[in-house]
């Protein structure tokens, strides 16, 4: 069995069986990562370029580690300091890199659909590491993988995605992924940060009351307020947001059960999530980061294989 897609542009294009294959493969890579020698030679004949047109800490390091632990050769490209500032187009930039014999592209871009556009013009697999406000598929995979690890399965679980749904590619990829795996999803946040027709379009529940969402769910995935993507004020102040929608210890202690807290990072500490919650045993934030390497290894491993 192999993946049904040639690229990983979004979770939208994957089948449930694809996601399950990725998880099953990631299980074995997770085991490899516990060994003294955390490396396998599977992709020793593969060169991978990480093309980042947008800032990143976790995703970029995670991809680079995943690639190196698969034995691949890795080159990194970031838009700042490159010829992009001289006006080189996306296709030209990538084609120039590919002419140096690169086998796979990992790309993050601030423009929605950039990897989909690129996939029509180049002939190697592309992994979307985040495109604008569309999708961030590997984040959703590692999030669902972390839920599966903590709670045994994703099927039938209730997941609340809290905060800035409008600008979040993590939210969209997570909704696709969780729904495909049979979880129930509620999005919660201020009305200005939740797209109007999301319930009908994606089959999720919507609430503007964070307490209601937390009381309902098994897992809360608390998203970062993306100030860099907001070009108009959608709530009055960070302090007010924190008071009305922030997840803190007091709020969690008032719930009927203990829920699992997730965050894709980077955390605005004290805004969407208080420090004591982020650092508590309820939080699996660092497990998410750890699982990121194994799930990305699985994605790269499965995509790097040549078509028959």
């Amino acid at each position: 069995m192999s993946l049904s897609a040639k690229h990983l542009l979004g979770i939208r294009d994957l089948k449930r069986s694809d996601i399950e294959l990725i998880f099953k493969t990631a299980d074995q890579f997770k085991d490899v990562l516990q060994r003294p020698i955390k490396k396998v030679p599977s992709l020793r004949d593969t060169t991978i370029v990480n093309v980042f047109f947008e800032n990143s800490t976790r995703t970029r390091i995670s991809f680079e580690l995943a690639e190196k632990r698969l034995g691949a050769d890795v080159v990194n490209f970031s838009a700042s300091g490159s010829s992009v500032s001289k006006g080189e187009t996306l296709i030209d930039t990538v084609n120039n890199i590919l002419s140096m014999k690169v086998d796979l592209v990992v790309m993050r871009h601030s423009a929605t659909g950039a990897p989909h556009f690129l996939s029509k013009h180049i002939n190697v697999p592309i992994v979307n590491a985040g495109d604008g406000i569309n999708e961030h598929p590997t984040q959703a995979l590692l999030d669902a993988y972390s839920i599966r690890e903590r709670l045994g399965s994703v099927e039938g679980k209730k997941v609340a995605i809290c905060g800035d749904i409008m600008h979040s590619r993590v939210a969209l990829s997570n909704i696709y992924c969780l729904k495909k795996l049979g979880a129930e999803v509620t999005v919660a946040g201020p009305p200005t940060l939740i797209p109007k027709y999301i319930a009908e379009a994606l089959g999720v529940n919507v609430t503007y009351n964070i307490r209601e969402a937390l009381n309902w769910c098994d897992v809360a995935n608390v998203l970062r307020i993306q100030l860099e993507r907001q070009n108009m004020p959608l709530f009055s102040s960070l302090r007010e947001y924190s008071l009305a929608y922030g997840v803190n210890r007091q709020l969690l202690d008032s719930l009927q059960k203990e829920i699992v807290i997730m965050h894709p990072g980077p955390i605005n500490r004290g805004v969407e999530l208080s420090s004591d919650v982020a650092d508590s045993g309820q939080s699996i934030i660092l497990d998410q980061v750890e699982n990121g390497v194994a799930t990305r290894m699985a994605v790269l491993y499965l995509l790097a294989r040549k078509e028959d």
Partner: peptide, 8 residues
Amino acid sequence: TFYRDDYK
């Protein structure tokens, strides 16, 4: 599996 020489 990850050590095979015929993977690709």
